[in-house]
């Protein structure tokens, strides 16, 4: 009875390759039909696939086969000729023979592929929109820094992190001195330029893991992790010096800064403290830092 049915008649490509060299040791006629190529001796499995598929085979499929012994539903592309591409779906598993062999079941996936293409196009469109929205919701449009909302969220995360590891957080609040005068004297356009250049100076002088934001009109905030009192005071002086030394838009600009430091305070407490210290710096004559 079984002799009447042949595996060759199943509409699926069956292939056996060696695990260590990927040499094809057996392939059903349907596989060659899919590839639109005649069988050749000593073929390697990779030669039937596009270069992109070879990357997937080497980066995903082979490591998975070596690690877990099987790999399911991987979409690959057969290069039938230089112009004809056949999307296929492959399942494979390793048989622990001596030498070890990989058994592949490869089926055509043309209809699934065109459906997926539509899904991918639609998803890409959604991705672009979602990213734009996310960026808009977090960024200060004028300077490109984080906005107040993003700052509060990220600073809270950093403070939780600090609390867990008993590290110190420093909250720097910086305000450009006499900004209203700059706006009145040179116009809002120049004022905007000053804000943008200030953002650049602060970006250059902060570290990658610091959180830097514009949180108000001419007000910037920085939160750092792991800096003690002395480091923070030095950092504050460094920032003010960097601002002082280069005229912005041809104008000598200075800033005042308040810095609160704590291991345990809440965000609101630090915010309030930094604000008070900033006010002190202003009232003591500006262009200076007051640290806790």
């Amino acid at each position: 009875m079984t002799a009447e049915f042949s595996l060759n008649d199943f509409p699926i490509g069956l292939v056996v390759t060696t695990l260590d060299t990927s040499q094809v040791v057996m392939a059903s006629p349907y596989f060659y039909e899919l590839c639109q190529q005649p069988a050749v001796a000593n073929a390697k499995l990779g030669q039937y696939f596009t270069p992109a598929s070879k990357i997937l085979l080497e980066s995903f499929v082979m490591p998975m086969l070596l690690h877990q012994g099987h790999c399911d539903e991987i979409q690959l592309t057969i290069a039938a000729s230089t112009t004809v591409r056949i999307p296929v779906l492959a399942n494979a598993r390793v048989m622990p023979t001596e030498p070890a062999m990989i058994y592949w079941a490869i089926s055509t996936s043309q209809k699934r592929d065109s459906l997926y293409q539509q899904l991918v196009d639609l998803r890409n469109d959604l991705e672009v929109r979602a990213e734009k929205l996310e960026l808009l919701s977090q960024t200060d449009e004028l300077t490109g820094l984080y906005n107040r909302r993003a700052f509060i969220e990220r600073a809270n995360l950093m403070m939780k992190q600090a609390m867990r590891s008993e590290m110190t957080c420093a909250f720097f609040m910086l305000d450009i001195d006499y900004f209203k005068t700059i706006n009145d004297q040179y116009g809002h356009n120049v004022g905007d330029h000053v804000l943008r250049d200030m953002a650049k100076i602060l970006t250059t002088n902060t570290r990658e893991n610091d959180i830097l934001a514009r949180i108000g009109g001419e007000e910037f905030a920085i939160m750092t992790l792991g800096q003690g009192r002395e480091d923070s005071a030095q950092f504050a002086e460094k920032l003010l010096a960097a601002i002082r030394v280069q005229p912005i838009q041809g104008i000598a600009v200075t800033a005042s800064l308040g810095c609160a430091i704590s291991k345990t305070a809440s965000f609101e407490q630090m915010y309030q403290e930094a604000d008070i210290l900033l006010y002190q710096a202003k009232s003591q004559g500006r262009d200076q830092a007051v640290c806790q």
Binding site: P51, A52, I55, P87, V120
Partner: peptide, 20 residues
């Protein structure tokens, strides 16, 4: 070839949930 790789990865990891 590499553009096709990105396309193939898309088809292997549609990942609707992450976007939707």
């Amino acid at each position: 070839d590499l553009e096709e790789l990105i396309d193939l990865m898309d088809k292997n990891y549609i990942g609707w949930a992450s976007y939707l």
